[in-house]
Design a protein around this nucleic acid. Structure first.
Lengths: 351, 351
DNA sequence: CTGTTAGCGCTTTCAC
DNA sequence: GTGAAAGCGCTAACAG
């Protein structure tokens, strides 16, 4: 019982013969290039459809000659998650080079819309595709639209600018991520009641704001035993986060859960650990954060952290490249494959 | 600040010139084909290494002419998880055909080692690669080894035969999956103490046995408040699972957790639901199972099921194809990309 | 508007 | 053992 999923392959020439035109004309129709009479277009398109013809990617790739260039615009600074994405891109070197693809990194300041926009504008014309960790700001939106208008394929990475005309977003649904964090804390706290603390980088960052929104949604509707404290804004900095949190712990004896929305994990963990040491015997605070890094991995193994909501950085790096390549080639995108899932990582399923 | 990850590309001809030989000789060395003097081999290899030369995959693919054929040997019968894998393979049709790859499905009885072995033997010589949902049995092991010896690339899918010489395993670490299930049940049960039930298809199936092993490991070491009841073997059948479980519930009033290792989910859910209806006000039994299907999705949304341990069937289908292709081409495998992760799926991060 | 043609960088005969 | 040469199925110039 062998059922073939793929029919036998035809070539451009077969289609040309069937439509009664030349190779070049089929090629023009295939790529929506101008200079073909509407009636001819129709005939060719019919022949293509009738045979469900698929051009051979390898032949197309070989024939075009020049390599494709992609730029990755990433935040400068020591964000471990972003460094992981860059590292995974580096691991693809052989894969990229066997396909004659060139990927270049461009570092820029994420918290400065003007700087980001300028970096993007500077890329215009030089690249076939651009992946950008974007800030949702009017000037960034404009820069993205300009690139798109110039024919560059653009994907937003990790953080989206939905109002722009970017071709694709590679990243997670942050509202769902926040809901997931909320549900985990709620469930892991169990019967107890008390307060839940939130530490974020800034509520001005779109992804952070969305996560908090999702988190509160779940808390309000499903865990009446828990009350959420006002969000602390630690700017993703260790010391600031630690101090704010230590003060909060001082003021509230009944904190049973802690959600760390962004980075600054070192400081958050420190504050939590100090609290645990000073009050032996108390119930542990349930601690959920984001992303699997060297640090969060250690905290999970130690048991100080209970779960990390994670978006696989390797998958994001590869998906961004594949999507840019598919867009550049005019191929359809395997949306199921390129969708980034929200991973729940606990000690026993650490990747 | 633009850092290029990929150097400029050379061609076979460049290497040939540098090594002072012809195109054909470089090609022979590149593919370890015989008929080249050892000294020449050395010179060519040096030139390749010195320039870290990467042959252009598109050119290689185009030049070989004939299409590659892969077979997927899957269990017959209505296992929803396997059907999902087949469906995802079907979705790749355009992708496959654009690469001139042919994928064929072969259905066989998983519970019959002889039948499986025969199906595999029958494939010999006709395919470049075979993906098989394998049973760990000596005759299956032998059949796999025969295929490998005949030059066919073989990957095991979902269920491994580690003792065979298969080139790759595409699937999850089932011991870790069982540990994850155990940790989830333990944590979600919380302070309560009581008993935990396990329903499996059969302890003779390698993946089921491994999951149970991991589950018990975690239970024994970390949740002294919970005691695990003897495993019920429901043969992945709905009715049988339901009856066995209903009887178990009748005999033990203090069951607080339930781990469903395999299929038969319909029956398990039925038994659990009946129990819940008959004893309002009691604490809910924490229910963890495997895989996200139409049914488990519904149960998660309803709240009857608390978490599903899942291996992404789409990812497995695509990884199997990519690995077979890389093996056939002699390319390195992106192990990080092809690794199948253990997903924890709860209501809020349903994919 | 449409057709002809010269490659792209490999693989694979077939000669030497 | 080694080399020369004919494609693979497209794309992109250039002619008409």
């Amino acid at each position: 019982m062998a059922d073939t999923l793929t029919p036998t392959a035809l070539t451009l020439k077969d289609i040309a013969r069937e439509a009664g035109v030349s190779l070049a004309t089929v090629d023009r129709v295939l790529h929506n290039r101008p200079g073909v009479r509407p009636d001819t277009v129709r005939r060719v398109k019919e022949a293509i459809a009738r045979n469900s013809f698929q051009p051979h990617v390898a032949a197309a790739e070989l024939a075009r000659g020049r390599a494709r260039r992609f730029a990755f615009v990433m935040p400068s600074g020591p964000n471990p998650f972003m460094q992981q994405i860059e590292a995974y891109l580096g691991e693809m070197a052989a894969w990229l080079s066997a396909r004659r693809l060139k990927v270049e990194m461009v570092a820029t300041d994420v918290f400065e819309p003007a700087a980001l926009a300028a970096s993007l504008e500077a890329l215009s014309g030089d690249y076939d595709g651009v992946a950008v960790v974007a800030l949702d700001h009017p000037s960034v939106r404009a820069a993205i639209n300009d690139l798109v208008d110039a024919g560059t394929k653009v994907v937003t990475l990790v953080s989206d600018v939905p109002s722009s005309r970017r071709h694709h977003y590679v990243g997670i649904d942050n509202i769902a991520a926040g809901r997931t964090a909320g549900a985990l804390i709620g469930r892991l706290v169990g019967q107890r009641s008390g307060k839940v603390a939130i530490v974020a980088g800034s509520q001005g960052l779109r992804d952070h704001a969305e996560r908090i929104f999702g988190f509160n949604q779940v808390m309000a509707t499903e865990f009446p035993n828990l009350s959420v404290l006002p969000v602390l804004e630690g700017r993703d900095e260790d010391e600031r986060s630690e101090q704010m949190l230590a003060r909060l712990f001082g003021g509230h004896a009944d904190i049973v859960g802690l959600y760390n929305v962004g980075a600054g994990t070192q400081g958050v963990a420190k504050a939590l650990n100090d609290k645990a040491l000073s009050e032996t015997g108390r119930d542990k605070v349930v601690f959920v954060g984001h992303d699997v890094t060297a640090l969060t991995r250690r905290l999970l193994l130690q048991g100080l952290m209970d779960a990390a909501i994670s978006q696989n950085p390797g998958h994001e790096a590869r998906a961004a490249v594949r999507v840019l390549l598919a867009l550049a080639r005019g191929e359809p995108i395997l949306s199921e494959q390129e969708k980034i899932r929200i991973d729940i990582v606990m000690r026993d399923n650490l990747p």
